Amino acid sequence: MASLSLINVPFLLVISLSIVTSSMVASANNFYQDFDITWGGSRGKILDNGELLTLSLDNISGSGFQSKKEYLFGKIDMQLKLVPGNSAGTVTAYYLSSIGPIHDEIDFEFLGNLSGQPYILHTNVYTQGKGEREQQFYLWFEPTADFHTYSVHWNPSAVVFSVDTIPIRVFKNLESIGVAFPKTQPMRLYSSLWNADEWATRGGLVKIDWTQAPFMASYRGFSSSACSLASAKPSCVSSMPNYSPWLSEQLDPLGERRLRWVEKNYMIYNYCTDAKRFPQGFPPECRAIS
């Protein structure tokens, strides 16, 4: 396994703050201002003057929240501390999504585990209502012991998933070969903690142990540099050429090396290598990067 010392190398996939203007969202650390608890009643709580949010799950209900704003392209960061102990059967979902049957979606899902077993980080990308682009990873740290930052950097050329600034997945814009890309539908940021024991842990073989309830996930350190929706159209679309340095940002060579390191050491499933799923041939995006 690769040395963890690689994690200490600075990550150069950044957004140039010099190009942020009033038509961009720049927010941090106030859940009262940025989010609404949308279900679960008192199981979702905003605490510490808006700096901390918690979701919980019991045998009656889970809970969830969503952002007040919608985004079209941006860099979204959130610090999460996952459900500790025996979390088998639970899923903590953290994702961007539009609405409707042909929605776009960018997913982080954390699949719970038996005590002592690793969490599985499940990722997916939906475009125009089509998903089934799963990649799964183990993490190189214990995600229940402290907060870690999970990020989406989404621009017209790619969607980059990162963990503590380490890129773990890139979904590139391959419209040139007929692959839809999320670029026209604004998305809200959502998160939920819910009962998924029909599939989440060992394919549903391990069920939730309700004697361990309530299960709790914690959130802090939300920040965004993003185009937000002020009305029916994104407020920064009309001046997008002014943001071209940010909108065209891509992984630099260091970022590419770190991505390869994660793929080699921590990826446990990639739909683009699952030949049994695609007897008629892999999807075009898989063939393009093979």
Rank of each mutant, 00 (worst) to 15 (best):
S3R: 01
M267C: 05
P156W: 02
D164A: 09
L174C: 04
P167R: 02
P245W: 02
L57I: 01
P101Q: 09
N86A: 09
I102D: 15
I37T: 11
S56N: 03
K172D: 14
W39K: 04
D104N: 11
S27K: 13
Q79R: 15
K45H: 06
M240N: 08
N173K: 05
Y219W: 03
V163Y: 12
L121D: 04
S27H: 10
S3W: 03
M187I: 07
V20P: 01
E263W: 12
T165N: 15
D107F: 09
P84V: 07
F278M: 11
A2N: 08
K264R: 13
Y269R: 10
L4N: 02
S151T: 15
V179S: 05
Y190K: 07
I289V: 15
P241C: 07
D274K: 04
G40Y: 00
R257I: 13
I208K: 04
S248W: 08
Y94T: 02
S27F: 08
P156S: 01
G40Q: 00
S218A: 14
I76S: 09
K183L: 10
R188F: 08
D209G: 06
V170F: 06
W199P: 09
I177T: 04
P167W: 01
G204F: 09
F282D: 11
V152D: 05
N124R: 02
L254S: 11
K207M: 11
R258A: 12
S87E: 10
K81M: 14
S223D: 08
I46N: 04
L12I: 03
L247C: 13
M267A: 10
G41I: 01
G100K: 02
V237E: 15
T184F: 14
E198H: 14
T149V: 13
S23M: 12
T144G: 02
R202T: 10
T149H: 06
E285T: 05
T273K: 13
A2G: 01
A232S: 15
G44H: 00
D107T: 12
T211E: 09
S61I: 01
F161V: 07
P253I: 10
T127D: 01
S56T: 08
I168W: 01
P84W: 03
W194E: 09
I7G: 00
Y94I: 02
S238G: 11
Q128S: 14
V9N: 02
I168N: 01
N113H: 12
K69L: 15
H153D: 15
M78L: 12
F108V: 08
G131F: 09
S162T: 12
Q280L: 15
N173H: 06
S231Q: 11
R169W: 07
I99G: 10
I177M: 01
L174P: 01
R258C: 05
I99P: 00
L80I: 11
S18N: 13
G64K: 07
F110N: 10
I7T: 00
L247R: 03
G44S: 03
S235W: 08
S228L: 13
V125Y: 03
L47C: 07
W199H: 12
G129P: 03
I60Q: 12
G100F: 04
P182V: 10
E198L: 10
S97E: 10
F215S: 01
L4P: 00
